[in-house]
Computed example of a mutant assay.
Amino acid sequence: MIRRGILALCLLLAGAAHAAPIRVVDDAGLTLELVRPPQRIVSLTPHLTELLFAVGAGAQAVGVDSASDYPEAARGLPRVGDYSRVNFERILALKPELVLVWLGGNRPADVHGLKAMKLPLLHTRATRLDDVARLLRLLGRASGHPAQGERAAQQFAQRLAAIERRYARGRRLPVFYQVWDRPLMTVGGGHWISEALAVCGARNIFADLTALSPVVSREAVLQRAPEVIISGSDAPDVHAGWRRYSELPAVRTGAFVRVDADRLHRPSPRLLDGVVQLCESIAPYER
């Protein structure tokens, strides 16, 4: 009888801990308070979906955006819209206890609409490599998995540090990272891809620009003379667009690199796989 009583008490305490109230300050400086860990979570970007699964809260996800395709379990979840527009009716029908949004990624009008519906929102930002570790901690606490979030964050930070040591270079190879062609878009110095280039021993030729994804002119690219031109797998063929500019060092040597956008363009734990691929792709052009 005593053993049964102790067991019942342990189960009661475990249940109470699992249902502990949630209180976190998000990236908009707003305090999110929930009476218990949310069991119905909607994610509105692919990287937030990945982060949710990475902290052990995948089973709590009930809806995601149309581009959330990783991990495999995310592919079978209901779709609630994409980067251009979310479907408010679908989100409401899922009765979410928490909605994850990306400031700077989701449309302000959509975020405003979700607020107007009085849905609990967790506002997030991501611009730098180490934001992934910070977001793992934040989502871990917000979803009721603080220990798993902390563990995942530490693993990410340790692997990032190892990559930085492995690819440390003296020379800074001038690189143009092309996000899109019409308009011609790149990444500014505050973007994690610019930081990833530095980790790989390269230099983003537009690192002086403050916008995260600035539009630039072809004349500006020609003037800054990149030795390598890089694009993501989701962009048009950059070789076709630049091969007639024989004055560019990258064109003269055929230094065109294409990387996996799903990894390098998403601030999730897989981002480091993208950084390694980026470094390995650049290495042959370093002299």
Rank of each mutant, 00 (worst) to 15 (best):
Glu97Val: 12
Glu97Ser: 01
Leu98His: 10
Leu98Gln: 09
Leu98Trp: 11
Leu98Gly: 10
Val99His: 09
Val99Ala: 12
Val99Asn: 05
Val99Leu: 02
Val99Ile: 13
Val99Asp: 02
Val99Trp: 06
Val99Gly: 10
Leu100Tyr: 07
Leu100Gly: 15
Leu100Asp: 03
Leu100Trp: 03
Leu100Ala: 15
Val101Leu: 13
Trp102Ser: 03
Leu103Trp: 02
Leu103Ser: 08
Leu103Val: 13
Leu103Met: 09
Leu103Cys: 05
Leu103Asn: 02
Leu103Ala: 02
Gly104Met: 05
Gly104Cys: 05
Gly104Lys: 11
Gly105Leu: 06
Gly105Asp: 04
Gly105Gln: 09
Asn106His: 03
Arg107Ala: 12
Arg107Cys: 13
Pro108Met: 08
Pro108Glu: 15
Pro108Lys: 13
Ala109Ser: 15
Ala109Met: 10
Asp110Ile: 14
Asp110Asn: 08
Asp110Val: 05
Asp110Ser: 12
Val111Lys: 00
His112Ala: 14
His112Ile: 13
His112Asp: 15
Gly113Leu: 01
Leu114Pro: 00
Leu114Cys: 10
Lys115Ile: 05
Ala116Asp: 08
Ala116Gly: 09
Ala116Glu: 07
Ala116Ile: 04
Ala116Trp: 00
Met117Leu: 15
Lys118Glu: 12
Lys118His: 03
Lys118Tyr: 03
Lys118Trp: 03
Leu119Pro: 09
Leu119His: 11
Pro120Glu: 07
Pro120Asp: 03
Pro120Met: 05
Leu121Met: 02
Leu122Ala: 01
Leu122Glu: 03
Leu122Asp: 06
His123Val: 04
Thr124Ser: 10
Arg125Pro: 00
Arg125Met: 02
Ala126Asp: 02
Ala126Gln: 10
Ala126Asn: 06
Ala126Ile: 14
Thr127Ser: 15
Arg128Leu: 04
Arg128Tyr: 03
Arg128Phe: 04
Arg128Gly: 08
Leu129Asp: 08
Leu129Tyr: 06
Asp130Lys: 00
Asp130Thr: 01
Asp130Pro: 02
Asp130Leu: 00
Asp130Gly: 04
Asp130Ile: 04
Asp130Phe: 01
Asp130His: 01
Asp131Phe: 06
Asp131Asn: 09
Asp131Cys: 12
Asp131Tyr: 08
Ala133Trp: 06
Arg134Ser: 11
Leu135Arg: 03
Leu135Glu: 14
Leu135Pro: 05
Leu135Trp: 00
Leu136Lys: 03
Leu136Phe: 12
Arg137Tyr: 03
